Simulated assay, not measured.
Amino acid sequence: MAGNQKSRAKMEQAKGKAKEAAGRAVGNDRMTAEGRAAQSKGDARQAKEKGKDVFRH
């Protein structure tokens, strides 16, 4: 299950990065902000999973 959450975090980060880039390309501030939010969500999920790994070992 931890691997699933880690891959989900990476996927959220990648989607956020793509959405942010697309928003910048077309000049859409809302899309850019949504992309940043998705990246932050992925970063938080990844940090949580890393924290779990520290306590497992």
Rank of each mutant, 00 (worst) to 15 (best):
M1V: 12
A2Y: 05
A2W: 06
G3W: 00
G3D: 08
G3S: 08
G3F: 03
N4S: 13
N4G: 06
Q5T: 02
Q5H: 08
Q5F: 11
K6H: 07
S7K: 14
S7M: 12
S7L: 11
R8F: 02
R8Q: 09
R8E: 04
R8L: 10
A9P: 06
A9N: 06
A9V: 10
K10L: 05
E12R: 01
E12H: 03
E12W: 00
Q13S: 04
Q13V: 05
Q13C: 01
Q13G: 04
A14Q: 12
A14C: 06
G16S: 08
G16F: 01
G16D: 03
K17I: 00
A18N: 09
A18P: 01
A18M: 14
K19G: 09
K19I: 08
A22I: 13
G23H: 12
G23P: 07
R24C: 11
R24S: 13
R24W: 06
V26Y: 01
N28V: 04
D29I: 07
D29Y: 07
M31W: 06
T32I: 05
T32R: 13
T32C: 06
T32F: 12
T32K: 14
A33F: 09
A33H: 07
A33E: 07
A33R: 12
E34R: 12
G35F: 04
G35M: 03
R36V: 14
A37T: 13
A37W: 06
A37V: 15
A38Q: 13
A38E: 10
A38Y: 01
Q39E: 12
S40P: 02
S40L: 15
K41I: 05
K41A: 05
G42L: 00
D43K: 09
D43M: 11
D43F: 04
D43Y: 04
A44Y: 03
A44K: 14
R45K: 14
Q46G: 01
A47R: 15
A47I: 05
A47S: 11
K48I: 03
K48W: 00
K48T: 04
E49Y: 01
E49S: 09
E49N: 04
E49L: 09
E49G: 04
K50G: 01
K50R: 12
K50P: 00
G51Y: 08
G51T: 07
K52A: 15
K52G: 13
K52I: 15
D53V: 13
V54D: 05
F55C: 05
F55K: 11
R56E: 08
R56G: 02
R56Y: 01
R56C: 07
H57Q: 15
H57W: 09
H57N: 15
